[in-house]
């Protein structure tokens, strides 16, 4: 009896301890973001202060107005929205078509092509960015929007996810029934497969948007004109040019992070589940 009670107390203490560790970890996870927001709200004299004060004592938005006045952050922001948006639309379309075809049709070369798409996904982008750059030099797409977006119009992971979805969630009988009624394959794709793929398409779209929002090394190579900079590139350019102005830099950083945080907090369950799912099947 006493031993069992002893055990129960030990278990409860263990749970408490684990929660303590998890809570401390959770604090570490959000600390950089909180520190970033706090710093962005501090007037200059509060930022360069020792010992540092964690929360702003006289919070103001002057860093935000200042950042937008010193650099075209509005333009950078819209560029990010545009780049990520176009990438999302294209990735959704290409993933839907290729995923459906790979899932539901038999044709010579099917397995080879699908294996090729998956296999090349292992090769990191950084490993072929130089030849890709030279290709874009030859078609004169350097320093253009289409050049920045091009590599992100296609996502092997999206095709994989859509193939899984179509193969498991859309009955072939349904497609066959449409065929018997005289429907063509394009019609089936648009009117049968697409309407039943909303969730999977949304998942692919979210990933494409998050990826498109965060791109950095490619725009760094290809965008020379400041008017083409996305938030990420704009922030580094800002850092190198106005490095002493920590407050404005933090304000710009907050502006770049907030859309991703909003998307994540709204759709966190779906994002986490799909990440886990594709991770396990990959």
């Amino acid at each position: 009896m006493a031993r069992r009670r002893h055990r129960r107390v030990a278990a409860r203490l263990g749970t408490l301890l684990a929660h303590g560790v998890l809570m401390a970890g959770a604090l570490v996870m959000v600390m950089p973001m909180i520190w970033m927001v706090a710093t962005s709200l501090k007037p200059a004299p509060e930022i360069a202060r020792w010992p540092p004060v964690f929360l702003p004592q006289a919070p103001s938005l002057e860093n935000y107005t200042g950042a937008f006045a010193t650099a075209p952050f509005g333009r950078f922001f819209l560029n990010s929205v545009f780049i990520a948006g176009v990438a999302t639309i294209f990735v959704a379309a290409t993933s839907l078509v290729a995923g459906a075809v790979f899932a539901k049709y038999r044709f010579p070369g099917r397995q080879f092509l699908f294996a090729l798409v998956l296999a090349t996904a292992i090769v990191p982008f950084e490993a072929y960015m130089i030849p890709l750059y030279l290709q874009l030099v030859s078609i004169e797409w350097i320093n253009t929007y289409q050049g920045i977006i091009l590599p992100y119009l296609f996502m092997a992971f999206g095709i994989f996810l859509m193939r899984q979805h179509v193969a498991s969630a859309i009955p072939s009988e349904l497609m066959e029934a449409a065929r018997v009624d005289g429907a063509g394959e394009w019609w089936i794709l648009r009117r049968v497969i697409a309407p039943l793929s909303g969730n999977a398409l949304a998942a692919v779209g979210i990933f494409a948007f998050i990826q498109g929002w965060g791109i950095f090394i490619w725009p760094l190579l290809i965008a020379n004109d400041q008017l083409l900079f996305n938030m990420e590139l704009g922030l580094t350019a800002f850092q190198f040019r106005f490095s002493s102005d920590t407050g404005k830099l933090m304000a710009g950083s907050v502006v770049s992070v907030v859309p991703m945080l909003a998307i994540f907090l709204l759709l966190r369950r779906r994002i986490i589940e799909n990440m886990a799912l594709t991770g396990l099947k990959g």
């Binding site: 970033m36 929002w213 965060g214 938030m231 590139l233 922030l235 580094t236 992070v257």
Partner: peptide
Amino acid sequence: LPVITPLVPMSIA
């Protein structure tokens, strides 16, 4: 959260 936040602003932070 850190998995989905963009890298440039977080590196700055």
